[in-house]
Design a protein around this nucleic acid. Structure first.
Length: 335
DNA sequence: TGTATTTGACCCCC
DNA sequence: GGGGGTCAAATACA
């Protein structure tokens, strides 16, 4: 968290100065015509970077932030500050907060102090207690998105007056690191598809591998699911590359929503499990989709209404492929 | 064989 | 009493 905060400060302060200096020099050299990067582009670049930091901080420690994110109706997140600490809030101005109120996003939150005691629960091979009313928040999304944490499904339940079952996930590190974070995922609308994820509790685990890459909220469909990738030079092999590890996580949740899947809904003839991505055998540049960043995003958005959940999860994988390419593209641009 | 998912049963709380 | 959250044995999968 300290490193992230420091990075945020550096980006917001020093990077702005560097870019301003760059612009001034460009104006001088080009006689007033800046052909490198327009100031608007620079500002957008900085805002995106600050937004990424904010998102990363938000995901890493939800109770530190108070921000509203809204991206072209792609995804909505409401998060509140339960600790009283000041979030950075950087980049918030570039996001369309007003539209947030137009969406019926329910928010529920309560302080951790209100968590009820489990003293009355009986021991049934360990603690067994009903949903504790801990800190919680809801996230609605048209597609299931990777949130940077490893989850394990532990239950599925048909809910009264609900068309789709509710799926229950707990943190993979519940036992080895005593992480109490859980979430429920339920499809609440069919057309257009809308998934409601309710998070309970904050992660206390430290999943270095998976935490090194997070899906961030973005400002355009093209960037609807972008990874932030930290230094991976310490990774000795492709097997440990966070890009590939993320597919394993996607696949885990992918398999948890097999209801109502029809073969005709398959976007391609290749099932995600057949991609062998989690086996780390496929190199991203081998895929033709990488030739044009954004191509798959456009393709996906055009067809997303026709797809069932299973297909959507496959599209998530394609989004992330595309994002990886786009990340490389950005790095080349920066060089 | 180890890990993840499924699913019926158990249990808490309204 | 019933809805909903969780457990854990059975099952699937790599």
């Amino acid at each position: 968290m300290e490193e992230l905060i420091q990075g945020h400060e550096v980006a917001s302060g020093q990077l702005s100065r560097v870019i301003n200096l760059h612009n001034n020099r460009s104006l001088t050299v080009n006689g007033g015509h800046n052909h490198d990067l327009g100031s608007g582009d620079d500002e957008g670049f900085v805002n995106k970077m600050l937004g990424s930091f904010s998102n990363t901080l938000f995901i890493s420690n939800g109770k530190e932030m108070k921000e509203f994110h809204h991206h072209d109706d792609q995804e909505l997140v409401i998060q509140v500050n339960t600790s009283g600490g000041g979030g950075s809030g950087a980049g918030a101005s570039s996001w369309d907060v007003d539209h947030l109120l137009d969406h019926a996003i329910k928010y529920e939150a309560s302080h951790e102090e209100t968590c009820k005691s489990a003293s009355t629960s009986k021991d049934r091979k360990g603690s067994y207690k009903k949903r504790k009313t801990c800190h919680s928040w809801i996230k609605d999304s048209p597609a299931l998105t990777e949130d940077g944490h490893a989850w394990r499904k532990y239950g599925q339940k048909l809910i009264l007056n609900a068309k789709h079952p509710r799926n229950y996930f707990r943190c993979t590190h519940k036992f080895d690191q005593a992480c109490q974070a859980t979430k429920h995922v339920q499809k609440v609308e069919d057309d257009p598809p809308l998934f409601r994820t309710t998070y309970y509790g904050n992660h206390t685990c430290r999943d270095y591998l998976n935490a090194s890459e997070l899906v961030l909220d973005c400002t355009s469909p093209r960037e609807s699911s972008k990874f932030i990738r930290f230094d991976d030079t310490n990774l000795s092999s492709k097997q440990e590359h966070p890009f590939f590890s993320s597919f394993k996580l996607l696949k885990q949740e992918d398999q948890c929503f097999k209801e109502e899947t029809t073969p005709s809904d398959y976007m391609t003839t290749q099932h995600p499990n057949q991609l062998a991505l989690s086996d780390h055998l496929v190199s991203p540049p081998d895929l033709p989709a990488f030739a044009s960043p954004g191509l798959m995003s456009g393709f996906a958005s055009a067809n997303i209404a026709q797809l069932d959940e299973d297909a959507i999860y496959r599209q998530m994988a394609w989004f992330n492929y595309d994002d990886f390419a786009y990340d490389e593209f950005l790095q080349d641009e920066l060089r």
